[in-house]
Design a protein around this nucleic acid. Structure first.
Length: 210
DNA sequence: GCGACAG
DNA sequence: ATCTTGTCGC
């Protein structure tokens, strides 16, 4: 897969993204997805599913693999999608929502990792990135404060303060959910700056590389 | 040509 | 992504 083909693939799948929330969507099982890297080109794709009402881990899966695509801004999904899809197929619990480590619509072609994995699996998904892809005003310091993330004059996501006085995270829609609901779900998962789902998947993945 | 550029 | 425990400050 060349970078040109990857871009074409994004353009092809982009129209399938849905930015409205499924009527009656209930988010009980939430999956956190993350990929960890070793010194060589080995990587580990990890997923942890938790029950949003109790925050208990109810399922998890981790797979080892090799990086098949370099890190190219804008084409991040082509590096992380393969191991994540393999890990997803090992789950015994079907998640109601996928929480991805990266952008969704806050992407140069409005098709970041969260959109890509959402469309491919047809599951609701949101992107939670640690650094922004776009411009934003600093939200006020209280937990829950948020401002728009703007790219090319469009609102593509939100800078969300998940913890008082700490740098915000950047939430954007992936698939089958709207931005308000995406932010509400992410905030509910945050005890510290990042969602518990992401934190648990991250520790599972790095542990697997040891 | 130069800077920006998720993880 | 990765290097990484204790420590400074509110």
């Amino acid at each position: 897969m060349t970078p040109e083909e990857a871009v074409a693939e994004q353009e092809r799948l982009r129209p399938r993204v849905r930015t409205s929330t499924d009527p009656g969507l209930t988010v009980q099982y939430v999956a956190g997805l993350d990929v960890s890297y070793a010194d060589d080109d080995r990587l580990a794709g990890a997923i942890v599913v938790l029950d949003a009402s109790t925050m208990e881990t109810v399922d998890s899966a981790v797979v080892l693999g090799n990086a098949e695509f370099p890190y190219v801004p804008g084409l991040f999904a082509f590096r992380e999608l393969p191991p994540l899809l393999r890990a997803l197929s090992k789950l015994t619990v079907t998640p109601d929502l996928l929480v991805c480590d990266g952008q969704g619509l806050a992407h140069p072609r409005r098709f970041g990792l969260a959109c890509h994995i959402g469309v491919v699996t047809d599951l609701p998904s949101v992107g939670v990135a640690k650094t922004p892809m776009g411009r934003f005003e600093q939200p006020s310091d209280e937990r829950g404060a948020a401002t728009d993330l703007v790219e090319d004059g469009e609102v593509v996501g939100r800078a969300l303060r998940t913890r008082a006085g700490v740098k915000p995270v950047f939430v954007s829609v992936g698939h089958r959910i709207d931005l308000d609901r995406a932010c509400a779900e992410v905030l509910r998962l945050c005890v510290t700056r990042l969602p518990e789902t992401t934190r648990r998947a991250d520790s599972l993945g790095r542990a697997q590389l040891r």
